[in-house]
């Protein structure tokens, strides 16, 4: 009885998903379109005459941007982990004075609109002379992930049994030793979640890139696409091919690390 009732639901589910993902399909379809077919009305709904010229354009024009985005992403992950994991260990297990206000500040920090941070960073970066550098973007992008990272790590580390940490202490391990050889190894899941999101947010950032690195020699892929749209708005196959390539980290996340994604979305929002 169960299967007979669930088959129509599966069909409805597939139709809904197809409808929802139509823009993604369309991006792929247009990325394979010949330039001459681009203005065709009605457009080809299927890539019947696929061309890879759009992707060749990506290889020719966008590789440096992709490399910069990769570097910014990795730098952001490293900075975020280095700052947030120790703080969470303290908040979860060492019970510092002022821990509660700090958690409150971290929650509020997530609410600050990016444009405000961008303007503040712009005036600071200009004074310090690090405007238009890729690693300046590492600093700015990490602000998207650090509060999230501390909250995720704290939630997880609070669940590590106190006995485990007491046992390490009894064996003579100092707090740093306990952190490095007990707490961090068991925190593999939140490390993956925080790293993935920090990378994804840095990779996707547009507002910091367009304000803090608009004239730099090393720019991320979001600016690569943005300039593409501005410069040659006839060759949408190239633009969409770049968009497809820029979506690879998201696709990777979905296929390889799906359970971490849902954990990241719900973390902080819903208390279990």
């Amino acid at each position: 009885m169960k299967t007979s009732r669930s088959t129509p639901k599966t069909v409805i589910g597939v139709v809904l998903t197809a409808f929802m993902l139509f823009p993604v399909y369309w991006m792929l379809n247009v990325s394979l379109m010949r330039t001459g077919d681009m203005r065709r009305d009605p457009p080809y709904l299927l890539p019947l005459h696929p061309t890879f010229s759009g992707y060749r354009a990506v290889l020719n024009d966008q590789l440096p941007y992709l490399g910069t985005s990769l570097a910014i992403g990795i730098g952001t992950v490293a900075l975020t982990l280095a700052v947030s994991a120790p703080a969470a260990y303290s908040l979860a297990k060492l019970r510092p004075m002022g821990g509660k206000p700090l958690t409150f500040i971290l929650l509020m920090a997530q609410m600050i609109p990016g444009i405000i941070m961008a303007m503040g960073f712009y005036s600071i970066f200009l004074n310090v002379g690090i405007i238009n550098t890729w690693w300046g973007l590492v600093i700015a992008d990490s602000t998207l992930a650090v509060p999230f990272g501390v909250l995720i790590f704290t939630a997880f580390m609070s669940g590590i049994p106190d006995e485990l940490i007491q046992a390490a202490k009894l064996d003579g391990a100092g707090s740093w030793r306990t952190f490095v050889s007990i707490v961090l190894p068991v925190s593999r899941n939140p490390i993956v979640t925080v790293s993935l999101f920090a990378f994804l947010w840095a990779w996707s950032d547009f507002i910091f890139a367009s304000t803090l690195n608009s004239g730099g020699s090393m720019q991320p892929i979001t600016l690569g696409i943005y300039k593409y749209i501005g410069n040659n708005n006839q060759e949408w196959n190239s633009i969409m091919a770049t968009a497809v390539v820029a979506s690879i980290p998201a696709a990777f996340l979905l296929v390889v690390a799906q359970r971490y994604v849902a954990a990241g979305v719900t973390a902080g929002a819903v208390k279990d």
């Binding site: 929802m20 993902l21 823009p23 993604v24 994804l200 990779w203 996707s204 547009f206 979001t222 696409i225 943005y226 968009a243 820029a246 979506s247 998201a250 996340l253 979905l254 994604v261 979305v265």
Partner: peptide, 8 residues
């Protein structure tokens, strides 16, 4: 998917 894609 829509939530994971870069905004641009």
């Amino acid at each position: 998917v829509p939530w994971l894609l870069p905004m641009i």
